[in-house]
Nucleic acid binder design. Structure first.
Lengths: 348, 348
DNA sequence: CAATTTTTGGCAATCGCTTGCCGAACGTGT
DNA sequence: ACACGTTCGGCAAGCGATTGCCAAAAATTG
């Protein structure tokens, strides 16, 4: 990088463009070809003779030429950027999704635009419309949109959702039913028969899904269910959640997510309700912190980072329909119950 | 959004552009003016008559016109995008920085490009050069660059660093010396006289800074110091760190960051070393989880989100030098010691 | 009311790159 | 050698904005 100034000096005449970033034109001139040839050599290598191509590539490298993504997308129509919308960047659940998408996008030469929609469907919609010109597609993690909104959006742009099934867009979800069943069996085998579901945000699809499965499966097993909430998916909502759950007389709770569960843990301890002796707690997501909270949380784990990666590949295959690719519309990530210390035998 | 199709129908003739996003030209035609006027009406309102401007704005709204950021930046030279580079998106320490920058950038009409540099200075450099055409500036959180690299980069582009002082770029740092002094006083007042510093990554500026202050201040107070490490700033490195620290015979540790400290907590518990009875631990950063780990961590807290915000405003004022703005080159965020349960009286 | 200044809006060049189209050069089969 | 199919590289027209320059219109002034 540093040597290229000296490099242009070595051409004989002083460097023409002292500082300004080199453009395709600079490369073309220096290589003695037209800009169109440079363009092709760089982005459509087969279209140009090998020796020409190599010369151009060499010159480009010497000049440290980097094509302007703006100019490129202006003329080509593709931006090579994908927006990833998450309800809350500080929620650890999304960390791994973000990392997963980031990895996969970068590998494919795309840029990731991360947007925090602050749990607001308005903001989500707004972003969707404001960014439509600047990205090729969207990944919506835990979208708060209604079905209708989602359908409309998916009609005009490439979208993949995570943890939000929809008939209109490809989706990657985690296997909630399977997960709930595992949790339920774990709890019943420990002797619990009165179990409470601690509900997350009303606009959350996965919350609805979890509750539904929980209720159905519980009925089948003759478990007495109750439900409290909704609560915001934050540790700070845990106190209220814990109090509400304690009142129901349940001996175990399945909690919408780990954030809430961890908050509950703290509150229960304050109130002298022992976990798991008096009350068992099962969380969801196995987020950062679930393993070192007190007590460590039994929780439903899932390969979240992979979910992000899968979402990206689904989106990209939607954007660049390859030959033999069977466009998957749905991916279900497996789950497993990670048992730690927040669950134990039911009190007598 | 939905009404605009019907809107164009109501003009009498069928909608001209059925689907394609409306361009400035569409707006111009519909409003009966030239594109240049539309451009001005929208981004330089004083340059155009009030009634014309309002008509244009109305038409733009009807059409749901959104200017193409690519086209805009091609001609104007500004991208209205800022890249934020962090060493590890899944490190909770950066969450709040990210959220802070995101907020502030959005408020100023900028787009945030988040990049995970994976603790690698090569990747950081690479990003810096690859993105130079697509962003107006960079925020480097905990940069791993050398001084020389940083200086070079800062020479050709707008940069603000966080937690990395540099003569060449404006910086926001947290008040490490103050923090270390607080921690030290806390520990000495509890009777500790042999304290170990648990070191983070060798390329981390704040690590170096913390160690330096620790050593100096300890010397003044007659404390016997030791140092172990370096360790990667992850909970998984905590085990090795704990073992190493235990060997030193120190009764208290000041740990590079909370991630590492939390990992140590787990290991110490496994080994039956009680915290704080046998060993006191002080972390840094007060990240998510520091309050609910076991035992809750005494740590040095700092307004991280605000650091992100400040960094953004420093960067923006660098980009758009306002009139009376005294361009600050350095912002120091205050710190305070949050005492929880991981520190206690020194063993006899 | 003429002269001058200020507003206001349009023209057209430009930003850097992609791509459809075309012609030159180069093989090939007969 | 001739007609024909390929390959390769250049020309030039955009992509959708911004902006310097200019002229028409309006406002101000003496």
């Amino acid at each position: 990088m540093a040597e290229l100034t000296s490099n242009s000096l070595s051409t004989g005449r002083p460097a023409e463009a002292p500082d300004r970033a080199p453009t395709i034109k600079d490369v073309a001139e220096r290589a003695g070809v037209a800009t169109s040839t440079v363009s092709r050599a760089l982005s459509n290598p087969d279209r140009v003779n090998r020796v020409t191509r190599e010369r151009i590539q060499q010159v480009a490298a010497e000049l440290n030429y980097i094509p302007s993504s703006q100019a490129r997308s202006l003329s080509s129509g593709r931006t090579l950027a994908i927006a990833v919308l998450v309800p809350d960047v500080t929620n650890p659940f999304y960390f791994d999704i973000i990392r997963g998408t980031q990895h996969q996008l970068k590998a494919a030469g795309y840029t990731q635009l991360l947007v925090d929609t602050e749990e607001s469907s308005e903001m989500e919609q707004d972003t969707l419309s404001k960014m439509r010109r600047s990205v090729d597609g969207y990944i919506l993690a835990a979208s708060r949109l209604t079905d209708a909104q989602l359908a409309e959006a998916a009609g005009s742009q490439a979208i993949v959702t995570i943890n939000r099934a929809s008939a209109n867009a490809p989706t990657v979800v985690i296997d909630t039913p399977g997960a709930v069943v595992q949790a339920l069996e774990h709890l019943t085998s420990l002797g619990h028969s009165k179990i409470c579901y601690v509900s997350g945000p009303p606009t959350s699809w996965s919350n609805a899904k979890r509750w539904k499965t929980f209720e159905e499966e519980s009925r089948e097993r003759g478990i007495i269910t109750s439900r409290v909430g909704p609560f915001a998916p934050k540790t700070t909502s845990g106190a209220a959640a814990a109090d509400a759950a304690a009142r129901t007389g349940a001996t175990a709770c399945i909690v919408f997510n780990d954030l809430l569960a961890i908050g509950m843990l703290q509150r229960l301890r304050e109130r002298g309700i022992r976990v798991p002796e008096d009350m068992s707690i099962v969380g969801c997501d196995d987020i950062f912190g679930a393993d070192f909270c007190n007590p460590p949380l039994t929780t439903i784990a899932s390969p979240i980072e992979q979910a992000g990666r899968v979402a990206v590949s689904m989106l990209l295959s939607q954007l660049n329909p390859l030959q033999g690719a069977t466009n998957r519309r749905l991916a279900v990530m497996p789950t497993h119950l990670t048992v730690r210390s927040s669950t134990g035998p039911a009190p007598l």
